[in-house]
Simulated assay, not measured.
Amino acid sequence: MKTILWATLTANGNYAQSGPENPPKKEALADFATHAQAAGNFIVGRRTFEAMRGNGGGGPFGEVDIVVVSKNASEIPGVTVVRSPQEALSYLQQKGHQTALISGGADIHNSFLGQDLVDEVIFNVAPVLEGKGLNLLINKDNYQYKHVKLLGCKPLGGDVIQLRYAIDR
């Protein structure tokens, strides 16, 4: 199964955190919806899912399998809850999906990256600088590099640029 990590970054490279003073860019949200529809699924952490749902999220995801990774939640109506990244991928594979879209938050992204479960990354770079932010990490304990290959670069509008990379695994 091909795994794609989708994230929005700030122009200075932080994992973009949205909120009332910095809402997500509509171009990035539309791009996420397009990728989720194409994959037929997305994997998300519980806090990020609750934030999506609290903001009226759910919109274009009627036929999309949503998998929430949570160590605490046992059941969330309308979605599948699993305990680990591997369990999320196994579930989607059993459902016949060829691609898994990993959508957020930073802890989920870092879990998948740290376990070497990501084949491709899509970074939408938002036109904002963030003073203190979260980072995407391939390993929290060691300083290391992982080589990537640029697959594409395109503007999404609203000064958002998308970078797409394949990861050597």
Rank of each mutant, 00 (worst) to 15 (best):
K2R: 15
T10C: 03
N12P: 00
G13R: 10
N14H: 15
S18E: 06
P20S: 15
P24C: 08
K26M: 08
D31L: 13
A33K: 15
A33F: 07
T34Q: 09
A36P: 03
Q37D: 10
N41T: 07
V44F: 03
F49L: 05
F49M: 01
E50P: 07
A51Q: 10
M52G: 04
G54P: 02
N55P: 00
N55M: 13
G56C: 08
G58M: 14
G59N: 14
G59W: 15
P60F: 08
I66F: 07
V67S: 06
V68I: 04
V69L: 06
S70C: 04
S70W: 03
K71P: 01
S74C: 09
S74K: 15
E75N: 13
I76G: 00
P77E: 15
V79F: 00
T80I: 09
R83C: 00
S84P: 05
A88P: 01
S90N: 15
Y91K: 07
K95T: 03
G96M: 02
Q98M: 08
T99Y: 00
T99I: 09
G104L: 01
A106F: 03
A106S: 12
A106T: 14
D107Q: 14
S111E: 11
L113M: 12
G114I: 08
Q115G: 04
D119P: 01
V121H: 06
V121M: 13
F123C: 07
N124C: 13
V125T: 00
P127M: 13
N135W: 12
L137M: 11
I138Q: 05
N139W: 02
D141F: 12
Y143G: 12
Y143L: 13
Y143V: 14
Q144G: 11
Y145P: 06
Y145G: 13
H147L: 14
V148E: 04
L150D: 04
L150P: 08
L150A: 12
C153I: 10
K154W: 01
K154Y: 05
G158A: 08
I161M: 09
Q162I: 04
R164G: 07
Y165T: 07
Y165H: 09
A166V: 01
